[in-house]
Design a protein around this nucleic acid. Structure first.
Lengths: 194, 194, 194, 194
DNA sequence: GATGAATGAGATTTCATTCAT
DNA sequence: CATGAATGAAATCTCATTCAT
């Protein structure tokens, strides 16, 4: 692996462990096993490193959700949504602290907002992905014509997002079973019939 | 108003404007119209100021939600939930950047987590409040016995929370009408019959 | 003496001893007997310190020359010009390295050129001062009507300036007698008659 | 052109554009179209590059002045001195910022002073050159026996040197006409008779 | 001879906190 | 209680130079 990616991985680890505020270039360099000066051979500045890692997280988030698109028409809708929700729960949990951190640096957010939207990288894209999946299922007649698919996506992913947020805030680490339980209660409520 | 609160208000303003990372004691003092030294006559350190402001925000969040409890039995459930959701949307929007900021300083979060839970101040309490409201309505027979009230609360507030997050992330400022529209689509999906 | 002036004096000493390039904030602080952080309570940045010292030097330069204005009409013109030239030689010698240093940072010069000219602080003002002195003498009939006073000022101070430059460049330290000798040869040539 | 000279020219350009303080090896390499490592195949270090360029400038300065020696006995003295002064004015202007820059690094100056004097490269040599020219004219009887030729050289070149310095300091760019005007006023004052 | 990534020493600047007044 | 100058630790970033390829 080249040094650039080694630095990025090290930075990701430090960011998730220590938080953005306590992530120093010295610490990143130590974790990457190189000198501080080397960071600047591969990134323009510390902000660049943060953004590189952040974009990686956002891509992860999208990756799993878009890959679930191919499930349209297979298994049951309910089953597929359970998988979607569980993946989202996990991804949100992993990236929550990093993504939230950007609110502590609104000027960075401001500076790169345009880029995020241009490259379609925002966290909002997850909801769109679920929406699109549901529309496909609707085309195949596997869900009711009247269903507001976007609203369903917002409810499902919204509850997962907030749940992940709260678990992070409270420091709770959920078992897989607990997550399945949460997801099922939510899905049962969204689709009372089954 | 005493200086302590003047400082707290100034700090809140600076925190919401500049973000936690760019909030310096010098800036807080300037905004409060006092000297930097004075901050330390009213707070032990900068972390204390941040926590004081943060707890204020969390109280706000709870305040509006608990006040809506008295609505149980009045108007229609649907109407009340619309008010709940709109209030949540607004409160979440206002406090999002501040509350998320804490993830950039996980050691602060760690240090005060116990206090938050002991004093019942976590952001998760909002969901409990809605749950409790719904339970009251169930007791009065205004909603179905089988309804998983906690799941409904999680879905409703979760979607509002994520929505507020995304609007903040994208820099979108919604009109009241847009918010009403969002809330209605979500509620229509949660309560298909009306 | 307050710390600001202590810092300025220390900076002047370090600048004249080590040169601009080797003048670090650490060294200035050490020479001023304070911490590096203290520098920033009195100056915005290192550039500010340099400019403060530089303007002090330029004022010195002007000071001695304007004070010599009151000599108009007294002693002999030749005698007065000898004093002017000797003072100039000394001032130029002392400030040469500092004033020249600015050419190693053309962007600083560019940034403050307007300020220098607005405040009439440029090194060119010395020549004006001598010109004005000579005009006064002309009004009193002590020098020929046809004399181009500005040209005389430029010749006299120009030769002193370049002489000071060369002595600094070569590392020669002249005795007072050598300077008197230089000045007299120059004046004898400028005013052949006496 | 070999790489060594390409580097030297690039360095000269960067030095005159950005100033010594802002001239980095990276920038020189970029301007020379080679790698930073290559600089060290042709020069021992950055100081070497600077000195190489500086000595080039000093040679320029001397070059034009020594070439004017052959004019002795031709045209009129006054005419020749006008050419000398104009050349000096131009050369001084071009090299001023570079030559002055050395005062920001007195240790470099100290380290190479001996070399400069041994190789007769100092800027003071210009005055000597004019002196020698005038002595030749004196031998041919074209100027008065009593004239202090060295003093004339110092006055003439000194005023040109300071004038060039001031124009550089003030950021004024003179037209050829303005320079001719300056030189003529100075020469008229030095040689009142014509 | 040419390269350019890696280095590490060092420079400037920021900032929370202290403390004498 | 209020002040604000002084501090010193730490953070980011620069840059000349080296060296393996």
């Amino acid at each position: 692996m080249d040094l650039k990616n080694k630095i990025a991985e090290a930075a990701e680890h430090v960011l998730l462990t220590n938080g953005l505020a306590k992530t120093t270039t010295k610490e990143i360099a130590r974790a990457a096993g190189c000198s501080e000066g080397s960071l600047y051979n591969h990134f323009r500045n510390k902000e660049d490193i943060f953004l590189y890692v952040l974009r990686g997280q956002l891509k992860n988030l999208m990756g799993t959700l878009t890959s679930l698109q191919s499930l349209a028409g297979k298994e049951t809708v309910r089953n597929n949504l359970e998988q979607v929700a569980l993946s989202a729960l996990e991804d949100f949990s992993n990236s929550m602290s990093l993504i939230c951190s950007i609110f502590s640096e609104p000027d960075i957010l401001l500076r790169h907002r345009e880029g995020f939207t241009l490259r379609n990288e925002g966290p909002h894209r997850a909801n769109e992905a679920v929406d699109i999946y549901l529309l496909k299922e609707k085309q195949q007649g596997r869900i009711r014509e009247e269903m507001d698919t976007r609203a369903v996506a917002d409810l499902l992913l919204g509850s997962c997002f907030q749940h992940a947020f709260q678990m992070n805030f409270l420091g709770n680490v959920e078992s897989h079973e607990e997550r399945i339980d949460f997801v099922n209660r939510v899905l049962n409520t969204l689709f009372p019939g089954g």
